[in-house]
Design a protein around this nucleic acid. Structure first.
Lengths: 194, 194
DNA sequence: ACCTGAACACCGTTCAAGT
DNA sequence: ACCTGAACACCGTTCAAGT
């Protein structure tokens, strides 16, 4: 499995790594996921080739920047896995994903890319597994349509996050997500809380 | 209102314009909406600056290439405006949009960009108006949730088209769209055909 | 091992010169 | 008016030289 980026052991390399990550975090937050890599290297006070050494692709840098973010989402999914109402738990988690996705510039694009990319990406696997557990439970309880796959679900949520990323109103994303969630329910399970 | 690109009157200019359009159509179909503009100019047997003269931005070129496509969708909306079942008519049209969007590489991205862009873009106005008529009728009939806006609707459809553009299976897009459409219905209108 | 600046390649945009 | 190739700017990627 494609592992998350290994942190260097040598002191100076580790220092550069951390600086790059901090600079990239700022750059992505301010200029979106397509911020120039050269600018990030310069802001970190590091040669541009050093950036490329640590993070071979832009996607690798994005995943590193959002690593904690993604871990938090996965952790949240584990908590919700034992929540009493399975459908409500899934909905709640999806709202989290969408909210984070449209708040943190680049996260949604990053997740979408991971979902399209190689199946052995740690990022894709982590998020897929987290979502799969919640989805399966809600489907077994008969509350969510059985004909929905994890892949489709995550694609839809990320698509919404992407579509509303630029939007000034956060409630807009909520509205779109509500429509999606409403569509996911089985007719009989429709009355349960959102 | 931002007009669709005016065709040149002079013979040689018109010839170049047509060649560029044909080359761009091919290039977008083969390499997606980000095909290099230089390649398009070269394939058209024209200087790169000539391309830029006729189409100041990539978006302008994309909208020109998809002009007929978009017109056809709008025309289809007009036909459906008098169909007996208002909700079914809307659904049918949305399926058209999604199908075209995921089939013609760049259309979905183009429409999404238009939806984010200036309100006076002819492309945005044409598609918005077409969708608005169908949506309003279905909402007045009480079949579609009243709290959905044209903008949201088109964003969602385009988001789905974008999310499934790379996908080899067209039925995947249909499934996602079904979920969306299901979510759009009012509870009482749910039993009407898809 | 790791770092660096410079070189290279690519592509979009602009411009001076031509018809 | 319109066209053209070349120049320019930008950015990602690679490399030869340094520690």
């Amino acid at each position: 499995m494609t592992r998350p980026p290994a942190r260097p052991r040598r002191a100076d390399a580790l220092r550069n790594y951390e600086r790059l990550l901090a600079a990239a975090t700022d750059a992505f937050a301010e200029h979106g996921p397509q911020a120039p890599l050269d600018d990030i290297a310069r802001a970190a006070g590091v040669g541009n080739a050093t950036l490329y050494r640590h993070f071979p692709t832009r996607q690798a840098l994005l995943e590193a920047v959002f690593h904690d973010h993604i871990q938090r989402l996965c952790h949240r999914a584990e908590e919700l896995a034992s929540a009493p109402q399975s459908a409500a738990a899934l909905m709640s988690w999806l709202k989290d994903v969408a909210a984070q996705g449209s708040a943190a510039h680049g996260l949604a694009a990053s997740l979408m890319a991971a979902m399209e990319g190689p199946e052995d990406s740690w990022c894709r696997k982590a998020v897929s597994d987290a979502a799969a557990a919640l989805l399966a439970r809600a489907q077994e309880a008969g509350e969510i349509r059985i004909d929905v796959t994890v892949r489709q679900l995550l694609k839809l949520v990320n698509a919404i996050a992407l579509a509303t990323e630029a939007d000034p109103k956060p409630e807009e994303a909520d509205r779109l997500l509500d429509i999606l969630l409403n569509g996911l329910r089985t007719p009989s399970g429709r009355r349960a809380g959102a």
